[in-house]
């Protein structure tokens, strides 16, 4: 039977034979659990007993849960501060680093190092920095200079930015590398033409560099948005005494899901939260792709 196929058909058969492995992998590892989570979100299940049908109860509970709305807001604060700040800083660094010749590789390595460091280790080190006297590095300096201490983590207003700072820093290295690749890809001839015309540097920046970096910016915005919407390690490790605290002021959605699933063992409710997170990620990504795509 195989013999009777044309060469083109044989190629198709082989293509599918090879594709079958990743397809199977995705179905078993990704699509089946995703579908299962959606199903569990319509049920009540404590991991031990039988699953019972709950309909939309878990979603109704979610809408009325004050903590959920607080967490929802936090998640977007992480996104709306984290993404623009990290985008601007990484662009500025990449823009200037691109012109540096002296120890270029070494400086680039310094920026990339935090990205390769384990988020857990980094979070614990920063957690140490933020402590009050006598152990916290920052507050020890403040106290030595006679300035009142700052409550970094034990504050409902300061805690979220304090946690976000190392998370932004950790992601910078990756974004800088991508930006630099984007900058290198812009043809030199445009800059030469601009220089011949005597155009000022800001016109070059806003009329040539940034417009031509658009695909790079789209990639970084989508990529880092997904990262900030899913923030977990930094928050959990820096607040593990009171996860997402104080008073839920730093709790992101993923941490709430974890807590609901593995401390309260309320798998149905946790799955409903997961489905909501999935929808948020989907919508945010679609909006960004639409706004930032080429006309």
């Amino acid at each position: 039977m195989y013999r009777n196929l044309t060469i083109r058909q044989k190629q198709i058969v082989w293509a599918w034979a090879f594709l079958a492995i990743p397809v199977l992998f995705y179905v078993v590892i990704r699509f089946y659990p995703t579908g299962n989570a959606m199903l569990i979100s319509l049920q009540n299940w404590n991991l031990l007993g039988d699953r019972t049908w709950a309909g939309l109860d878990n979603y109704a509970k979610l809408m009325q849960d004050e903590v959920f709305w607080k967490v929802f807001k936090n998640t977007f604060v992480y996104l709306l501060i984290g993404t623009p700040v990290s985008l601007v800083i990484s662009f500025i660094i990449a823009y200037h680093l691109d012109r540096v010749r002296f120890m270029h590789g070494f400086i680039r390595m310094l920026y990339f190092l935090p990205f390769m460091t384990s988020a857990v280790a980094m979070a614990w080190v920063w957690r140490g920095f933020y402590q009050p006297v006598p152990v916290g590095l920052f507050n020890n300096y403040l106290a030595a200079a006679g300035i009142p201490q700052i409550e970094f983590l034990r504050s409902t207003t300061n805690a979220l930015p304090s946690i976000l700072a190392p998370a932004v820093w950790a992601g910078l290295g990756f974004q800088i590398i991508i930006f630099m690749a984007g900058l290198r890809a812009i043809p030199r001839s445009y800059y030469e033409a601009a220089r011949i015309d005597g155009v000022p540097w800001w016109t070059v920046l806003f009329e040539i560099t940034i417009p031509l970096l658009k695909p790079t910016i789209v990639f970084i915005v989508v990529f880092s948005s997904i990262g900030f919407l899913r923030i977990f390690d930094h928050v959990f490790n820096m607040t593990s005494n009171d996860p997402g605290g104080p008073l839920n002021s730093t709790k992101p959605l993923v941490l709430m899901i974890y807590d609901t699933a593995f401390n309260a063992f309320d798998m149905g409710y946790a799955s409903a939260q997961t489905v909501v997170l999935f929808l948020i990620l989907l919508i945010v990504s679609l909006i960004q792709l639409r706004i930032l795509r080429d006309r």
Binding site: R154, D242, G245, P246, L247, N248, N263, A264, F265
Partner: peptide
Amino acid sequence: ANESGQRQILMDMVQRMDIE
């Protein structure tokens, strides 16, 4: 019923008095 949940409630109680 849920030890970490019930602990959280008492932690929040002290935080509300201490911070707020």
